[in-house]
């Protein structure tokens, strides 16, 4: 009887951690989707926004305390996002979506290279208030940082869903995403919608990055960008232009990853580290069945 309970709690822990991790992926994916909807660009610089936010959070909070650090990180990432749109993409002669997306990849290379150079071989601690403390509840053990992540992500995601549905900014975004010409005809200030979306995407990535660098992760390292790369499939999985899709995609990938991490030890040598791949395995499986993602709208192109 005892071992059975052990199995159950272990599974529950895995799922709970997965939901928390997944809510972070949802946050990243949502920012990615907002940018995609507003500008049609697949933002390959998203992982650099995340890393920049976490890096600034860690360095500033070492001197000025965690909250100031977090604020600085979020603002930096938002500024980086706005900069990418206002200074790089806006002035590109090649305005095709593919060209702009590849351009964002260039921004990513520059930013990640620079931050990696600054971090060097170190791991920067976050100085977050919950540090390595854990919660014990009915035999389940979960890091407090994960609970905090879940709470913050849930609040932010709800907030954004409400913004989308009930504000003019949300409507402007939905109209620009659906039909850019109509958006122009009704007088949506496209420039402003674009750069605010990039800034919001950056800020959300920074918040998620901060939590991803916290316990049980060791701190801010360049490899943090891999987490952002696992959120790309979350966005594509959901259909890329769908807000609920980003949420569901993030959660699905978070849970799948966490459950795999719990059991990958049983898979032998080849299994260790497999949790890092699960995101893409899930993505391939879904895309084979539903090429437009779980919630994506079928795109009808005009020839």
């Amino acid at each position: 009887m005892k071992w059975k309970k052990h199995l159950v709690t272990r599974f529950l822990e895995a799922v709970l951690n997965g939901v928390s991790l997944g809510s972070l992926y949802s946050l990243i994916a949502l920012g990615f989707v907002i940018i995609f909807r507003a500008t049609g660009v697949m933002n390959f610089a998203h992982s650099s926004f995340l890393l920049a936010g976490a890096y600034v959070t860690a360095t500033v909070s070492a001197k000025s305390g965690f909250l100031v650090g977090l604020l600085a990180g979020v603002v930096t990432a938002a500024a980086l996002g706005a900069f990418t749109q206002l200074v790089i993409l806006r002035f590109s002669k090649d305005k095709s979506h593919l060209g702009l997306s590849v351009l964002s990849l260039g921004v990513n290379i520059l930013a990640v290279t620079e931050i990696t150079r600054r971090i060097g071989d170190n791991t920067l601690p976050l100085h977050d208030p919950w540090a390595a403390s854990v919660w014990q509840f009915a035999g389940i053990t979960v890091p407090v940082s994960r609970i905090a992540a879940l709470a913050v992500a849930a609040a932010l995601l709800t907030g954004f869903l409400l913004l989308f549905r009930f504000t003019r900014w949300g409507l402007a975004l939905r109209v620009s995403a659906a039909d850019r010409e109509v958006a122009a005809l009704v007088g949506v200030p496209m420039g402003r919608v674009s750069w605010t979306s990039w800034a919001i995407g950056g800020a959300m990535a920074a918040l998620a990055g901060m939590f991803l660098a916290g316990f049980p992760a060791p701190g801010v390292e360049p490899s943090l960008t891999n987490s952002a790369m696992r959120a790309f499939p979350a966005a594509v999985l959901g259909g890329l232009d769908s807000i609920p899709g980003a949420l569901v995609g993030g959660l699905a990938i978070g849970i799948a990853e966490s459950v795999t991490a719990t059991y990958e030890g049983h898979l032998g040598g080849f299994g260790s580290g497999a949790s890092g791949l699960v995101a893409y395995v899930v993505l391939f499986a879904v895309l084979l069945l539903r090429p437009d993602g779980l919630f994506g709208t079928k795109v009808v192109s005009r020839v």
Binding site: F44, V236, G269, F270, Y280, L283
Partner: peptide
């Protein structure tokens, strides 16, 4: 089978998966 179902940009993200799977194989 994957590429046939994806337009250019989606393919970019999906191809990242190939990178990670391949590096896993090479390592493990």
């Amino acid at each position: 089978p994957i590429s046939a179902r994806l337009r250019g940009l989606y393919l970019g993200v999906a191809s990242l998966g190939l990178v990670f799977i391949a590096s896993h194989v090479m390592q493990r």
